[in-house]
Simulated scan of single mutants.
Amino acid sequence: MSTSATHDERMAKLTFASVYPLYLTKVEKKNRTEQELQQVIEWLTGFDAAKQQQLIDQKVTFESFFEQAKLNPNAELITGMICGYRIEEIQTKLTKEVRYLDKLVDELAKGKKMEKILRG
């Protein structure tokens, strides 16, 4: 599945700082913790809580965020639908990486066990 150039550009320009509070609100509404959210982000990107905060403070774009990330080798095991897109069919690398993160946050908010979310 291909995404439009406009969609991909919008993903690249979003800042991690603008999306993080939305992720946090989503998981906390379902009685999950910020530490669990940070754990999920660290599993995917390699960024510990301190680095995540630094990237928030710097207001980095998702483009810069994922350029700096060391994506987990098991990230490609993240499949399914998110925001109307089948993750495994997304062709643009950055958009796929953003949707990986969205999917992990969604699974956390839905109460999935951490062992299942952190594939492998």
Score class of each variant (00 low, 15 high):
residue 15 T to S: 15
residue 16 F to C: 06
residue 16 F to I: 08
residue 16 F to T: 11
residue 18 S to H: 14
residue 19 V to P: 08
residue 19 V to D: 09
residue 20 Y to G: 07
residue 24 L to N: 05
residue 24 L to W: 04
residue 24 L to F: 01
residue 25 T to P: 12
residue 26 K to A: 14
residue 27 V to H: 03
residue 27 V to F: 00
residue 27 V to M: 01
residue 27 V to A: 03
residue 27 V to P: 03
residue 28 E to P: 07
residue 28 E to K: 12
residue 29 K to Y: 11
residue 29 K to T: 12
residue 30 K to I: 04
residue 31 N to Q: 08
residue 31 N to Y: 04
residue 32 R to N: 02
residue 33 T to H: 00
residue 33 T to S: 03
residue 33 T to D: 02
residue 34 E to S: 06
residue 34 E to W: 00
residue 36 E to G: 02
residue 36 E to Y: 02
residue 38 Q to G: 15
residue 39 Q to H: 10
residue 39 Q to W: 01
residue 41 I to E: 14
residue 43 W to Q: 03
residue 43 W to S: 02
residue 44 L to T: 07
residue 45 T to Q: 02
residue 45 T to W: 03
residue 45 T to S: 04
residue 46 G to D: 04
residue 46 G to H: 05
residue 48 D to I: 08
residue 49 A to F: 04
residue 49 A to H: 05
residue 51 K to W: 09
residue 51 K to F: 12
residue 52 Q to F: 07
residue 52 Q to N: 14
residue 52 Q to I: 11
residue 52 Q to S: 11
residue 53 Q to I: 04
residue 54 Q to R: 08
residue 55 L to W: 10
residue 56 I to F: 05
residue 56 I to G: 10
residue 56 I to Q: 11
residue 57 D to L: 04
residue 59 K to A: 13
residue 59 K to S: 14
residue 61 T to L: 14
residue 61 T to E: 15
residue 61 T to I: 12
residue 62 F to H: 13
residue 62 F to P: 09
residue 62 F to C: 09
residue 63 E to T: 12
residue 63 E to D: 14
residue 64 S to M: 12
residue 64 S to I: 13
residue 64 S to W: 13
residue 65 F to G: 13
residue 65 F to C: 10
residue 67 E to W: 09
residue 67 E to K: 10
residue 69 A to D: 05
residue 69 A to V: 05
residue 70 K to S: 13
residue 70 K to H: 11
residue 71 L to Y: 09
residue 71 L to A: 07
residue 71 L to D: 08
residue 71 L to R: 08
residue 72 N to K: 04
residue 72 N to Q: 01
residue 72 N to M: 01
residue 72 N to F: 01
residue 74 N to T: 01
residue 74 N to R: 07
residue 75 A to S: 10
residue 75 A to G: 05
residue 76 E to L: 10
residue 77 L to D: 02
residue 78 I to M: 00
residue 78 I to L: 02
residue 78 I to W: 03
residue 79 T to I: 05
residue 81 M to R: 06
residue 82 I to M: 00
residue 82 I to N: 00
residue 82 I to P: 01
residue 83 C to A: 15
residue 83 C to Y: 15
residue 83 C to K: 15
residue 84 G to R: 03
